[in-house]
């Protein structure tokens, strides 16, 4: 909106973008990279779960849920820091 000065908007967007890359990196690790090592991870067994299997069936999912809530809080804090949060 017109009430957000351009330099403030640019700084807000720079910080938003770096949060986005952080989130996508974690997403990429949990979605692909971890499962690349499934055979190695499966050699470790906790509570009966081979760890590689556990990560695909449960571990990565927990990371996704926590990541979204963390992201929502971080992004809200960024919005407030630059005074562009909703009223």
């Amino acid at each position: 909106m017109s009430d957000v000065p351009p330099e403030k908007a640019a700084a807000h967007w720079a910080k938003t973008r770096s949060l986005m890359w952080t989130c996508l990196t974690i997403w990429f690790l949990a979605s692909f990279v971890v499962h690349f090592f499934v055979a190695t991870l499966n050699k470790v067994v906790i509570l009966g779960f081979p760890v590689g299997f556990y990560m695909a069936g449960q571990g990565s999912l927990i990371i996704f849920v926590v990541l979204i809530f963390w992201y929502a809080n971080r992004q809200n804090a960024i919005d407030e820091e630059f005074g562009v949060a909703e009223d």
Binding site: L24, V38, A56, S60, L61, Y71
Partner: peptide, 24 residues
């Protein structure tokens, strides 16, 4: 077995993209 977990992962992880890239 394990290979079916691709569906479990695929149908959940997309929400990270929804939250960060699009929904807001």
């Amino acid at each position: 077995g394990y290979d079916g977990l691709a569906f479990v992962l695929g149908w959940t992880g997309g929400y990270v993209l929804v939250a960060v890239l699009l929904a807001p």
